[in-house]
């Protein structure tokens, strides 16, 4: 049943307009010739040109991508373990604390986690000499810590959807637990691993607050550079950057959606074929 009440439709229309109009305006004004962001001065690519000549922004982008790739990979590794623990390990000593530590980073205000992890680094350095100063390593660790919570949730929910008798079947057929994990569980949850990694990558790429705490003087990430320039006001160069970011994200999501849609179609077709064969018997 579909409910076509005018109230719901207008709520949806208003809501989506609210979500998308600001982004669309950003994109439109990134092609604005005029330096004044609010006045249309003709179509131009000039801000994109300036963007690609901004050494500081490009350097920061490079650092951000590096950190995002590293922390997403680490977070996926740790998050997969944590998801496995949550979904499959039953009770063990300290489970309550563990699940608390998994969910808390997702709701904790970032100023707190950022401050906390920075102070941790300072104390650690005092005690052990490591980490020597703050920079890419400390930012990566901080990002890994909050991103792994999200990865854990993704993996955990995938695992709890999975029929665990599939794993039992593998064991029943003679595979030892470690082999069961690598031959059966991992291939089945692979899509969740990919989306977990992408989620962690995006979170890391986008983070400002935690990064600001964990960063050293020589390691400014893209959001930090953007933030300090935005604080001074609106510049069309940032609009151009925003357009690129939105464009890439949209492209990636649309592509992922298309691939999933096609797989679904194939699956449906195969299913129909199998059913037709059965009827023919």
């Amino acid at each position: 049943m579909t409910n076509r009440s005018p109230f719901l439709i207008s709520a949806l229309a208003f809501g989506f307009a609210f979500l998308y109009v600001p982004i669309l305006l950003l994109i439109v004004f990134s092609f604005n010739e005029s330096k004044l962001v609010t006045v249309w001065g003709g179509f131009s690519f000039k801000w994109y040109g300036e963007l690609f000549q901004d050494e500081q922004l490009l350097g920061a982008a490079k650092i951000s991508l590096l950190i995002a790739a590293m922390s997403a990979t680490l977070a996926t590794l740790l998050g997969t373990m944590a998801g496995l623990i949550m979904a499959r390990f039953g009770r063990f000593k300290g489970r309550t604390l563990f699940s608390g530590m998994i969910t808390a980073p997702m709701v904790m205000p970032e100023v707190i986690t950022g401050l906390a992890i920075l102070l941790m680094f300072v104390v650690l350095e005092e005690l052990t000499g490591w980490p020597d100063g703050r920079g890419i390593t400390t930012i990566t660790i901080a990002h890994t810590t909050f991103a792994m919570a999200y990865v854990t949730i993704v993996i955990q929910s995938r695992l709890s959807q999975m029929d665990d008798s599939v794993e039992e079947a593998a064991m029943d057929l003679g595979a030892r637990p470690l082999k069961v994990f690598f031959l059966i569980t991992l291939p089945i949850i692979a899509p969740a691993l990919v989306s977990g990694w992408l989620l962690a990558f995006t979170l890391s790429l986008d983070d400002l607050v935690t990064t600001s705490f964990a960063a050293g003087p020589s390691s400014s990430t893209l959001p930090m550079v953007v933030f300090s320039s935005v604080r001074l006001g609106v510049t069309p160069k940032i609009n151009a950057l925003a357009t690129i970011v939105v464009g890439l994200a949209t492209l990636a999501i649309v592509m992922a959606g298309y691939i999933m849609h096609r797989q679904e179609q194939q699956r449906k077709r195969a299913m129909q074929r199998a059913l037709a064969e059965q009827d023919a018997l």
């Binding site: 029929d163 008798s165 599939v166 039992e168 079947a169 064991m171 029943d172 595979a175």
Partner: peptide
């Protein structure tokens, strides 16, 4: 289970997808 001379057919079939 992986060392027993018995095998099982599961209710859900548990085929490896």
């Amino acid at each position: 289970p992986y060392e027993r001379p018995v095998n099982m057919m599961f209710q859900s079939y548990a085929l490896f997808p």
